[in-house]
Design a protein around this nucleic acid. Structure first.
Length: 277
DNA sequence: CGCATTCCCTGGGTGC
DNA sequence: TGCACCCAGGGAATGC
C-alpha cells in the first residue's frame, strides 16, 4: 500500500515521464473513482489541460494543470501505468485512461477500487477542499515539530500506533511505516500517547523522518530500473525490520516478532525491544 | 470534541 | 475442482 515514500516516488517518476504533456482524451471506465462530479464533467475539466507541476501532501498526489488541480489518493492498490503509443492499455483493473498528446496513455489501475480522484479549480484554496478536510500537515512540513505532536497528543487517549496513523495530526504514515517507526523508537505500538513527553516526541519525529526518508531513497534507487511499460507504483527496497515479519527474529534482540491488532490494524512488534511507557 | 464501528471492494486464503 | 466464507486495509460516514 502506498504511503508517503511510495507516493513521493510515483510523483517523481510521473514528473519525469509526463511533465508538459497534454491530456487529449479521457476514458472513464469506473466513475465511482471520481469524487463529487460525474465522468463527463471530469473529462470536460481535464481535457486539453497540461501536466505542469507535481506535488504531494501526505499520501495525496497533486497534479497542477493549467486551470485545475487533479488530486489523487491511491489508497490500497492504486497504480499509474504509462503505456506507449502501440501498447494496449486495457485490462480488468484499468479504470481511468488518460490519452496524452504524444500517443502514450496514463492509466490508473486499482484492483480494489478504493482510490479516489478529485478535481479542483485553481481559483479555490486547495487545502480547504473536501479531499483535504481531514488531512493535517505533511510529515516533512516544518509545522510538525516535537511540541506540535506533544500538544496534539495531550488531549487524546489513543495509542502510539493510532496516533501515527492519524492523518489529521501528521499526514503520510501508513500501516507499514507506523510499525517501523514504533520499532525504531523502541516503543510498544499500544503505548498510550498521553504518557509520552516532549522529549519522546522529539525522538519519535526524528525516527519518523529517518524511516520515511530512507524509504524515499530506496524507492528512488528502485525507480531507475523502471521502464515505461512497467507500473509506476513506487515499489521500494527498504529493509523492513518488523512489518510482515511475524515469527522471524528481531534484528536487535533475536526474539520472535509478534503480530497483534492495534486499532483494528495488523501490527508487528518485538515484545522485548518495544516497551509500553 | 474524541473514539469506536461500519462500509467500501476484490483477490487470496481456508475449509469442506 | 469448486463453492461458501472470511479477511485486509485507508479513510469517510455514522453513532455515541
Amino acid at each position: 500500500m502506498p504511503e508517503l515514500p511510495e507516493v513521493e516516488t510515483v510523483l517523481r517518476t510521473l514528473e519525469h515521464q509526463i511533465k508538459g504533456n497534454e491530456i487529449v482524451h479521457i476514458e472513464v471506465r469506473y466513475a465511482k473513482m471520481i469524487d463529487a462530479i460525474d465522468a463527463q464533467e471530469f473529462t470536460k475539466l481535464l481535457v486539453h489541460q497540461h501536466f505542469i507541476d507535481f506535488s504531494r501532501v501526505g499520501k495525496y498526489l497533486i497534479f497542477g494543470m493549467n486551470d485545475v488541480n487533479l488530486v489523487v489518493h491511491l489508497r490500497m492498490e492504486g497504480k499509474f501505468y504509462i503505456y506507449q503509443k502501440d501498447e494496449d492499455p486495457y485490462s480488468k483493473h484499468a479504470h481511468i485512461i488518460f490519452m496524452l498528446d504524444d500517443g502514450r496513455k496514463l492509466v490508473y489501475h486499482d484492483v480494489r477500487k478504493f482510490g479516489r480522484m478529485y478535481v479542483y479549480d485553481k481559483d479555490v484554496i486547495l487545502y480547504e477542499q473536501k479531499a483535504f478536510q481531514h488531512v493535517g500537515y505533511d510529515a516533512f512540513d516544518s509545522h510538525v515539530d516535537a511540541n506540535y505532536l506533544y500538544q496534539q497528543a495531550k488531549r487524546r487517549k489513543t495509542t502510539l500506533k493510532q496516533f501515527l496513523l492519524d492523518q489529521s495530526v501528521m499526514a503520510g504514515v501508513g500501516n507499514i511505516y507506523a510499525d517501523e517507526i514504533a520499532f525504531r523508537s523502541k516503543l510498544h505500538p499500544e503505548t498510550k500517547i498521553y504518557h509520552l513527553t516532549k522529549k519522546d516526541f522529539e525522538m519519535i519525529l526524528e525516527n519518523t523522518r529517518i524511516i520515511l526518508q530512507g524509504a524515499i531513497k530506496a524507492g528512488g534507487t528502485t525507480i531507475r530500473s523502471y521502464t515505461s511499460s512497467l507500473g509506476v507504483d513506487g515499489k521500494f527496497q527498504l529493509q523492513l525490520k518488523v512489518h510482515m515479519k511475524k515469527g522471524e527474529a528481531c534484528p536487535t534482540c533475536g526474539n520472535s516478532i509478534d503480530k497483534i491488532v492495534v486499532g483494528g490494524r495488523g501490527t508487528y512488534v518485538c515484545r522485548t525491544c518495544q516497551k509500553r511507557k
